[in-house]
Amino acid sequence: MNWFRYASPVEFYPLAGRMIPWFAIAAVLTTAFGLYWGFFQTPDILSQQKEYYRIIFVHVPAAWMSMWLYLVLVGWAVLGLIYNTRLSFMMAAAVAPTGALFTGIALLTGVLWGKTSWGTWWDWDPRLTSELILFFIYAGYMALQSAIEDSYRADRASALLAIVGLFCIPLIYWSINCPDPTQCAALHARSSMSAIETNILAAMWTMVFAFWMYSFAVIFVRVRNIILERERNSTWVSRLIGGDPS
């Protein structure tokens, strides 16, 4: 099988279309399963005092996806710059809004979590601050993409911005290793996986998988939209939509 065949929007468009329903079904099923697990199969010991921990079932998956999707975005941007392929830049552009959405969800649920566990909505803790910076980088990428009329130049300029913004990911990841607690108030402490109840971990991982499947589905829908928008004057799009609009 020649994978490079799918580097062309003409070939990738129907392939993505066939995959979307499967990712959507997987997302719905794993979400239902993860929520059931997270709310009904978790221990009662915790639920008596610290029920708010259940926020992690949306907070942690959203935060991880916000970082992972940024790496995916940069990956496509770099591929686009190296191989000069149209589809790579379209993929990068399709990933950005979903990445920004998950960054927003991570921040919003983090604020609610903060109020319950630390007693404050917001603090300039290194991880909160760097996650907020990531949100602005996503926003900057999208703004630059839409500000430049010519998509050839917009793709390349925003790809460079995405690469520069890469510094943020290790910053978020390692920001909880605060060397001196009196210098920087690290509210996130690293907890060892073995210290967490297995049922909680399993529910959380299920939700991570669910959000990942959701990301595949919406990003493929968006990349198909971008393909149609950019290639609307081509004969293949005209023939495709004229015949069978699926």
């Binding site: 639920s47 610290k50 029920e51 708010y52 259940r54 969800i105 649920t109 609610l112 979590w113």
Partner: peptide
């Protein structure tokens, strides 16, 4: 949710709505 209902349901609700 042990008194934390508002925070928990707002978190899940916001995530779902977005």
């Amino acid at each position: 949710m042990g008194g934390f209902g508002f925070y928990i349901w707002t978190s899940f609700g916001l995530t779902f709505l977005l």
